[in-house]
């Protein structure tokens, strides 16, 4: 889902950068208000893990592969969508600047799609599903699936505005492929949540009193 520079006119890239910068500054305010120094290494490990898993593309049939994005995972583990914005912004900057995975002018759009939209959709759909079902596995899986699908559909619309994809083909391709990739997103998110909760339950306090 990493948009390369060639897929978007520079002025549109600047617009998405401005929107992304607003959310990056809000995420830094979240770090300042909600994080103390004891949690810093744990957040850094989560970011390193998300970077590594993003490099591991798994086949989803239809001649396509996909990987975890991680917005829902970061937001659920740390209890805020701004955690996803903070972590995904850094991951996407490293990927774009050092590895050319995603463009420079399109980095704002990538941060907006995967960090902001992925984080907010993942966090609030998780909260809503938990309130309705009290089932962590179901809620985390579905929230991560939505957090993969919705940014993909938004990307298709951005590609249409950029003149890169026709809207119908873009929505069909991005929607179908990321509905399949979302199954990977959901599965890895649930496994990672259990793994982290089993060794550091103090940082995943969303599991208290919940059917796992």
């Amino acid at each position: 889902m990493h948009i390369p520079d060639a897929f978007m006119p520079i002025p549109q890239g600047i617009f998405y950068w401005v929107v992304a910068l607003v959310f990056i500054s809000l995420s830094l305010r979240w770090v300042r208000q909600e994080m103390d120094e004891t949690k810093v290494p744990l957040v850094a490990v989560l970011a390193a893990g998300i970077f590594a898993i993003q490099a591991f593309n798994l086949p989803v049939t239809m001649g396509t592969s996909g990987h975890l994005v991680g917005g829902a995972l970061a937001a659920i583990v740390l209890g805020s969508p701004y955690a996803a914005v903070f972590i995904l912004s850094l991951v996407l900057i490293v990927q774009g600047v050092i590895f050319g995975d995603g463009g420079i002018t399109t980095m704002g759009a990538n941060i907006l799609n995967m960090g902001v939209i992925g984080g907010f959709v993942g966090f609030y759909s998780y909260k809503g599903l938990m309130a309705a079902t009290r089932n962590l596995n179901l809620s985390a899986f579905a929230a991560a699936w939505f957090a993969c699908l919705v940014p993909a559909l938004v990307t298709a619309v951005e590609m249409w505005i950029a003149g890169t994809f026709p809207l119908d083909l873009g929505l069909a391709g991005m929607g179908l492929y990321h509905a399949a990739i979302g199954v990977i997103e959901g599965g890895i998110t649930v496994v990672a949540l259990h793994l982290i909760a089993s060794v550091r339950p103090d940082i995943v306090n969303v599991t208290k009193g919940v059917t796992v």
Partner: peptide, 12 residues
Amino acid sequence: ASPDPDGLESTA
């Protein structure tokens, strides 16, 4: 890792 293109590349 799979060498197949990701969702955005496949759509392109």
